[in-house]
Simulated scan of single mutants.
Amino acid sequence: MFSVSLAHATPEPVSIPAGGLSSSPAPLVAHLFQPDAPGPHPAVVMVHGCGGAYAKDGALNARHQMWGEYLASQGYLALMLDSFSSRGLKQICTQKYSERMLKEADRVGDAYAALSWLRQQSGIDAMHIGLLGWSHGGGVTLDVIRRKPANMLEGFSAAVSFYPGCTTRNKKAASFKPYAPLLILIGEADDWTPAASCVALTNTARAQGAVMQIVTYPGAYHDFDHPGLSKIRLRADVPNGVNPGKGVHTGPDPVAREDAKRRTLEFFAGQLK
């Protein structure tokens, strides 16, 4: 177990300029979790899923708070990036993929705007910055890690993607060539973003020389790492998934969550420290 200080538990709100990288019409909102020890520190940019960054009370949701605290307690500066508020959005989970005004590819610039901003801050190890995303943000992570902006010489050093959508990407697997080490973590029972496509995508990428890993968790569903969920439930309000119109299952798996935390920490330690 780890202990979290008050500094970790209360992230600092910051503003990220679009800087010509992001399509956001206004500066992006973000929340900064800082380690106690003096820097320079490696950093991790975190990108949320289709539900946004916040709980119903307006605070960061339990998953993002947990991960921010956890990474800060292990010596990383963690930046929780909000792609929705500056665009007037709260959530897009209940929208069909074809009707979403904000696609995963549209958020790629957000991640690079955050990367550029972090590199200008004191106390940051500018050459060791990772990316961590969930679901819609997991797909953003896959898009980010396969291409850098033309005017950016160095991209992210490593990336972790929780339960991204791989089905469409797997249809063009030959062109998926991540430029940095990549780890995918996904539940085998996931009926929102199925694991099989991610396994196939990983196998193709590895065959082409990519430094890419995948871990699948038997019996685990979408959102398996979310500490704020108490049980598996059917989300009938989600029109996408393996069975469109029939809803998707989400829910916690404490064993998988703890394993994923351990693997994420080991992965980032190997790439960012």
Rank of each mutant, 00 (worst) to 15 (best):
P178G: 02
A180I: 14
A180M: 14
P181R: 03
L182H: 04
L182M: 07
L182D: 05
L183C: 02
L183T: 00
L185E: 09
L185W: 11
I186R: 00
I186L: 01
I186A: 03
G187A: 05
G187E: 03
G187R: 00
A189P: 04
A189Y: 05
D190K: 01
D191M: 13
D191L: 14
D191G: 07
W192H: 11
W192Y: 11
T193K: 04
P194S: 05
P194T: 02
A195K: 02
A196Y: 10
S197F: 01
C198G: 03
C198W: 01
A200P: 04
A200F: 05
L201H: 01
T202D: 00
T202H: 00
N203Y: 11
N203M: 15
N203I: 10
N203T: 13
A205V: 00
A205W: 00
R206E: 13
A207L: 08
A207K: 07
Q208K: 10
G209V: 07
A210S: 10
A210T: 02
V211Y: 08
I214M: 01
I214Y: 00
V215E: 11
T216R: 00
T216E: 03
Y217F: 14
G219V: 07
Y221G: 05
H222L: 03
F224R: 07
D225A: 15
H226P: 15
H226E: 15
H226M: 14
H226S: 14
P227E: 04
G228W: 09
G228Y: 07
G228F: 08
L229E: 12
L229K: 08
L229A: 06
S230R: 08
K231H: 13
I232R: 06
I232A: 06
R233T: 14
R235V: 11
R235C: 11
R235E: 13
A236R: 08
D237N: 13
D237Y: 05
V238W: 15
V238G: 07
P239Q: 12
P239R: 12
N240Y: 15
N240V: 13
P244H: 07
G245D: 05
G245F: 04
G245Y: 07
K246R: 10
V248E: 09
V248P: 01
V248Q: 08
